[in-house]
Write a protein that binds this DNA or RNA. Structure first.
Lengths: 195, 195
DNA sequence: TTTAAATACGGAGGCACCCTCCGTTTACAA
DNA sequence: TTGTAAACGGAGGGTGCCTCCGTATTTAAA
């Protein structure tokens, strides 16, 4: 019944666990308030810890970001499963992409992280990135297999395109535009009714 | 015949002119080799000048970038005019977007700059940004006026989407994908024949 | 409890970069 | 030739990144 503690050989010292939590909390708030570019020193200070401690727990800035956003990301993955089960393939794909836009909009904090994972350097944010990629790939491929759309580009590129529109775009209407883009993309991929 | 020296009240001192040129040359090469993030100190050193001189000529990193890329950008603007004159509206729009992809691909050096100008902080790269925006806006609006497509998103968002796919995307096939995305976008905006 | 090994902590220190400020040098016009 | 506006250069102060290692704490064995 020791399923909670996924495979970990040793036992982390109590103080280490506590401090890890403090760092994550401080980081989450700092990222939200100032973006993923905040000074790591500031995060450590906010957590009441030394910079060395931060670096021991999270050797790179991205390791920290990864940890902070893993939870949020998994919500997107969960939604993908639900949509796939409840809706016809193309609709599921469309809805999930719209949800993706919502995530970029609502949790502006996530935009940078999602962006980084969607656009390049895949090594970073490995875990979250894998979830997202799996979600969009599955949905897109199911939609393609249903015959309703033709998948002429890599599924992840759909998200890249959507992210491109959201990315720091100044205009207050970007969310609207991003959602319209989703529909343009779906329409552009649709197979014409009479072959 | 004094058309070369666009309106400038005073006369810049000879050494100032020469050094400005050196800085631009050094910057162009450095940007090409190491991206727009290079140390400005290194650029100044390469140009055989002091860091203070660089900052006097180009108060911000972006002022320097702007200057370096203004020429390249104007080529895109010129191409837009030519295509608009030679091709039917939708084709002109499509071709120019493909050309945009080529620019991102060929002059990888430009990708960062074009990206920055296309995605947000419009104040930076003002001059180049204006050119690009004017080009896509004109082409897109002409295509929409022809009745062949429906322009449901901001023209610039088309470029944002394309840029999103190109943006640091690791895969070697990104250029292909970006071009296919252009066709998906065009197809997605096309007005159905018997609307 | 005592004790010693294992582990974690903290922050000084070295490095890189940014940008400013101002004393020195230079170009050029009178 | 000479006075001065303009340009130069780099030291200096600030911030951030990351490493390293002496000190402090926890844990478990005796």
């Amino acid at each position: 019944m020791a399923d909670d503690a996924e495979e970990m050989g040793r036992k982390p010292r109590a103080d280490a666990q506590r401090n890890r939590g403090r760092l994550l909390a401080a980081a989450k708030q700092a990222f939200a308030e100032k973006g993923v570019g905040v000074s790591l020193e500031e995060i450590a200070r906010t957590a009441g810890l030394g910079i060395g401690t931060l670096y021991r727990h999270f050797p790179t800035r991205d390791a920290l970001v990864e940890e902070v956003y893993r939870h949020e990301t998994s919500q997107l993955a969960t939604a993908a499963e639900r949509l796939a089960a409840e809706l016809p393939p193309v609709e599921a794909l469309r809805e999930w992409m719209l949800l993706f836009v919502d995530y970029l909009a609502t949790k502006l904090i996530m935009a940078e992280a999602l962006g980084a994972m969607v656009s390049g350097r895949e090594e970073l944010h490995a875990a979250s990135g894998t979830m997202i990629k799996a979600a969009i790939a599955t949905l897109a491929e199911r939609a393609a297999e249903s015959g309703a759309i033709r998948l002429s580009i890599a599924p992840l590129d759909l998200l890249r395109a959507v992210f491109g529109v959201s990315n720091a775009s100044a205009g207050p209407g970007w969310e609207e535009n991003a959602k319209r883009l989703v529909d343009i993309l779906i329409a552009g991929m649709r197979v014409p009714p009479q072959g």
